[in-house]
C-alpha cells in the first residue's frame, strides 16, 4: 500500500515475535508450533477458515489466552504471561470481531474514556492533560479521522454495525499502539462498505504494525503486504499476498471455504 515499506524489509529487528507457540482446548489444537516474526510497520493479513486459529493467535498475543507453551515477545518484552492491561501498556492493542464498546455512552464519550485512561496512565494529571478541553480536542480529532463526527452524541449501543466497527478500531488506536491487531474489521458490514472502512482504517494507522484477520481475499490482496494463512492451528503459508493466495494448499483449505 505504501511504497517504500517493502525495502525496509525483513532485515530490521522484528517488533513482534512468536516462537514455538502452542495452545489446545481439550482435544482441539488451536495453535500448533506458531513461529512468526513481524517487521515494524508491516501490514499483515491473517486468513484461514473458521476455527483455523486466527483469533486464538490474536487472543494469545493480547493476553486474553495463555499459550500452553512457547513465547510471544514485543520489542524485546515478554508478553506471554501478561494480562491484557499490561499488554496494552507495552504497546499492543486490538479491536474485536464483535465491537467491545461502552454501549450506554455516546461515541464521543467512548473515546473520552479511552483518552482519559491513556492520560492517567502517563501520569498526565500534573500537566492537566486530562483537562476537559485537551481531552476533548484529542477526542474530536479522532472522531474526525474516522468519519464519526456525525455520530458523536449517539449512544454506542444504537450505532449501525459499520460505525461500531470503526469506533472499536478508533478505541484501539487511542492507546497509541505500536502493534495493532484487528479481528475481522469488515465482518458484518455490507460488501460495498468494506473498502471504505479499510481505507479509513489503513489511513489512520500509518506507522503502526498491523495484523488484520480477513475473510475477503480482495481486501487481503489490496491492503496486506504479507499474508499468514492458518489451517488447523498451523501456519500453512507465509509470504507476499500474490504468492500465498496462489498457493495450492491455501486455495484448498482457505479460499475454497472462504468463497463458499
Amino acid at each position: 500500500m505504501v511504497a517504500g515499506r517493502e525495502e525496509t524489509g525483513r532485515n530490521v529487528n522484528p517488533i513482534l515475535v512468536a516462537s514455538g507457540v502452542n495452545r489446545s482446548f481439550g482435544a482441539v489444537i488451536a495453535a500448533a508450533d506458531i513461529n512468526v516474526a513481524v517487521e515494524p510497520e508491516a501490514v499483515l493479513g491473517l486468513i484461514g477458515a473458521n476455527g483455523a486459529g486466527k483469533t486464538t493467535f490474536i487472543n494469545m498475543v493480547t493476553g486474553y489466552l495463555k499459550p500452553s507453551s512457547g513465547s510471544i515477545r514485543c520489542d524485546g518484552h515478554e508478553l506471554t504471561a501478561l494480562a491484557p492491561r499490561r499488554v496494552t501498556q507495552l504497546g499492543v492493542s486490538r479491536s474485536f470481531q464483535i465491537p467491545q464498546l461502552f454501549n450506554t455512552l455516546s461515541a464521543r464519550e467512548n473515546l473520552l474514556v479511552a483518552v482519559g485512561i491513556v492520560a492517567a496512565a502517563a501520569h498526565a494529571w500534573a500537566h492537566s492533560d486530562l483537562s476537559p478541553a485537551r481531552a476533548g480536542a484529542a477526542t474530536d480529532e479522532m472522531l474526525e479521522r474516522f468519519g464519526l463526527a456525525a455520530y458523536r452524541d449517539r449512544p454506542a449501543g444504537l450505532l449501525p454495525e459499520g460505525v461500531r466497527k470503526l469506533l472499536d478500531v478508533a478505541m484501539a488506536l487511542v492507546v497509541k499502539p505500536r502493534v495493532l491487531l484487528l479481528d475481522e474489521p469488515t465482518s458484518g458490514v455490507s460488501a460495498d462498505e468494506k473498502f471504505a472502512i479499510m481505507d479509513l482504517v489503513m489511513g489512520a494507522v500509518r506507522g503502526v504494525t498491523v495484523l488484520f484477520v480477513e475473510h475477503d481475499m480482495d481486501i487481503v490482496a489490496r491492503y496486506a503486504q504479507r499474508v499468514l494463512a492458518f489451517a488447523d492451528g498451523r501456519i500453512i503459508a507465509d509470504g507476499a499476498p500474490a504468492a500465498v493466495l496462489a498457493d495450492a494448499e491455501v486455495r484448498r483449505y482457505v479460499i475454497g471455504e472462504a468463497h463458499a
Partner: peptide
C-alpha cells in the same frame, strides 16, 4: 460507567 458497560474494553485500554 465504562466499567459498568464493558470491563473487557476498559482492561484492553490499559486501565
Amino acid at each position: 460507567t465504562a466499567i459498568r458497560d464493558n470491563e473487557l474494553r476498559v482492561e484492553y485500554l490499559g486501565a
